[in-house]
Simulated scan of single mutants.
Amino acid sequence: MTTQTVVLRDVRATYGTGDRQLVALDGVSVTFERGTFSAVMGPSGSGKSTLLHCAAGLDRPVTGSITIDGVVLDGLTEDDVTRLRRDRIGFVFQAFNLVSSLTAEENVALPARLAGRRPPAADVAAALTAVGLAGRRRHRPSELSGGEQQRVALARALISRPAVVFADEPTGALDSVTSRSILDLLRALVDEHRQTVVMVTHDPVAAARADRIVFLADGRITDDARVPLTAEAIAARTTHQVVKPC
């Protein structure tokens, strides 16, 4: 089994055409190893979310190669990529993306049901128990706090036992105490279950929980810190990121 869960090689991604074309990623190469927690940071427009979306197969790069859990995305059909995302990738977003009319357990089961599968009730219950919501499984999003909604989203991401969890600003809409509990859960996925987590964040406190921090500016990787850093040190590095000349 490969230790490389996600591999990007010379990935270039653009938006728009002609004079209005914007280069979002400019030849990015990066690998995320199995059983690690990586944070991706950078100023607005640096390419953080584009990197995440390309790595997850949500966006197609103009050039370059992307591999997820040993599967090369190049040349796959949209249906193939959709199946890969469904079976091997978990997503957690800032906006939670829960269906308001469904209960917590129904939201957790929804991706599998949309794929034509009926997840075992025991698996749904276990996913909610893992995020501390065993007693809230029949509650709808409006009956849950923001932190509880994000826990439901995390349970939904985990039920398929994905190779990697991509988290896009997962604590951006939460207070500091609730944010800490979500980060604790993400950290436990790595430490206790050898899960791979890749998190985009602007928050140095959140990034400090990761094993590694990849810094972006103007679509290029400008720094790659693989040692623990304090939130203060991360904030200082973030403000001094510049694009290195080719």
Results as ranks from 00 to 15, higher is better:
Pro228Asp: 05
Gly132Phe: 03
Pro204Lys: 04
Val242Trp: 09
Val152Thr: 02
Thr67Asn: 09
Arg117Ala: 15
Ala153Ser: 14
Arg136Glu: 15
Gln149Phe: 03
Leu98Phe: 05
Asp211Met: 05
Ala13Cys: 14
Ser101Thr: 15
Ala130Thr: 11
Arg118Tyr: 03
Val197Leu: 09
Arg20Thr: 11
Ile182Gly: 02
Tyr15Cys: 09
Val6Ala: 01
Gly219Thr: 07
Gln4Val: 15
Arg140Trp: 08
Leu58Ser: 03
Ala233Trp: 02
Ala121Val: 13
Arg209Asp: 11
Asp19Ala: 15
Val81Cys: 07
Leu22Pro: 02
Gly116Leu: 03
Ile234Ser: 04
Ile159Ser: 10
Gly146Lys: 03
Asp74Asn: 14
Val6Met: 01
Cys246Asn: 11
Glu106His: 06
Ala157Glu: 01
Leu114Ile: 14
Val124Leu: 11
Ala109Gln: 08
Ala130Asn: 11
Thr50Trp: 04
Ala206Ser: 13
Leu73Asn: 06
Arg180Asp: 13
Leu58Ile: 13
Val62Met: 10
Ala167Cys: 08
Thr36Lys: 12
Leu183Lys: 00
Ser38Thr: 15
Val242Phe: 10
Glu192Gly: 11
Leu174Trp: 00
Arg180Lys: 12
Thr2Lys: 08
Gly16Asp: 05
Thr2Cys: 09
Ala39Gln: 03
Arg60His: 09
Thr171Ile: 01
Leu186Tyr: 07
